[in-house]
Simulated assay, not measured.
Amino acid sequence: MKLSRAEYRVIAKYTDQLKPTRHCMKMLQERFPGYLPSTLLSIFSLEYQVDLSPSLMARIILERFLQEQDKTPYSKQVLSSMLRDPSSIPDHSLADNVYQSTINDCCYGPWVDSIKHAIGHEHEMLLHNKLREKNLSFLDENQLRAKGYDKTPDIILEVPIGALTVCELAAVEGRIVHWIESKASFGDDHSHQNYLNEQFWSYWNRFGPGLVIYWHGFIEELDCHRDRGIMLKDSFPSDIVTFNYRTG
């Protein structure tokens, strides 16, 4: 789902009055019924300013509890482990409160981190399946790292065979795409600019023009670098055209 910057600002302004609880999603959907729930949640996660969200409050209290219970320094791994599994907290009342805080926080905390990781992996698999449906050969991130690349996109449309390289190119809306990056999030100004600086331009420098899929949508004005080789979409392109050539 593509939003104008003006639409995004209206939603972002409304989120200022919300707290990161499960109930906030019901309020968002009632206020903006024409938008996908996944898009609204992604926008809220981006816009919410961390103050004392339930998960953060639980972390602070648990940290203080550990300091008082054990005079020796505790590791961050122990703290994180207890937040992931509150049943390991020796104080049962505190364990219950930590559990309630983390499961009712829709933006931060170990539960949300696990969900985001799972959703990211799910969309990467969706991308792989879409490529296979189109009979497109590709190398994924793990295969590229095994070849020695340190910073890679999720997909490169290239498969080496012996001394030759069979390069499979995709053209989307008349533009060549060498690589595809999957983002299971909404593309707002701040996050997209960070991705451009830290990832996308380096992919472009190394591999050429590419495609970024923001599965939960993006601000449509950000799709302004097509002439420079970076295209944005909110779904896998249905009009993709492929062709092969050999080098070597």
Rank of each mutant, 00 (worst) to 15 (best):
M1L: 10
M1D: 06
K2S: 11
E7Y: 09
R9E: 08
A12L: 01
A12G: 03
K13L: 13
Y14R: 09
Y14C: 02
T15D: 02
D16H: 14
Q17I: 15
M25S: 06
K26T: 05
Q29N: 12
Q29S: 07
R31H: 13
P33R: 12
Y35Q: 12
Y35E: 10
S38V: 13
S42Q: 00
Y48V: 07
Y48W: 12
Y48F: 09
L52N: 09
L52E: 10
L52C: 09
S53L: 06
S53T: 05
R59Y: 03
L62W: 03
L62Y: 00
F65L: 04
L66E: 03
Q67A: 09
T72K: 15
V78A: 07
D85K: 14
P86V: 06
S87K: 08
S87V: 03
P90H: 01
H92P: 01
H92V: 11
L94S: 06
D96N: 14
D96T: 14
Y99R: 15
S101F: 13
I103V: 15
I103T: 08
D105Y: 08
C107H: 05
C107Y: 09
C107L: 12
P110T: 05
D113E: 15
I115A: 15
K116T: 04
G120W: 11
H121I: 10
E124G: 00
E124W: 10
L126S: 07
L127Q: 06
H128G: 04
N129H: 15
L131C: 05
R132M: 14
R132G: 02
E133Q: 09
F138A: 04
F138R: 04
L139H: 10
L139K: 14
R145L: 06
R145H: 05
G148I: 14
P153K: 03
D154M: 04
D154I: 06
I155C: 05
L157Q: 04
A163Y: 11
L164H: 10
L164T: 14
L164Q: 12
C167D: 10
L169P: 01
E173H: 12
G174Q: 12
R175Y: 11
R175I: 04
I176V: 14
H178Y: 12
I180L: 12
I180T: 03
E181Y: 09
E181F: 04
S185I: 00
F186V: 02
G187V: 01
D188K: 00
D189A: 09
H190R: 13
H192L: 05
E198Y: 11
R206D: 08
G208Q: 08
V212E: 05
I213F: 07
H216Q: 13
D223C: 08
C224L: 09
C224I: 11
H225K: 10
L232N: 03
K233F: 10
D234T: 08
P237V: 02
S238N: 11
D239T: 14
D239I: 13
I240E: 05
I240F: 11
V241A: 13
T242Q: 10
F243N: 11
Y245P: 02
R246E: 10
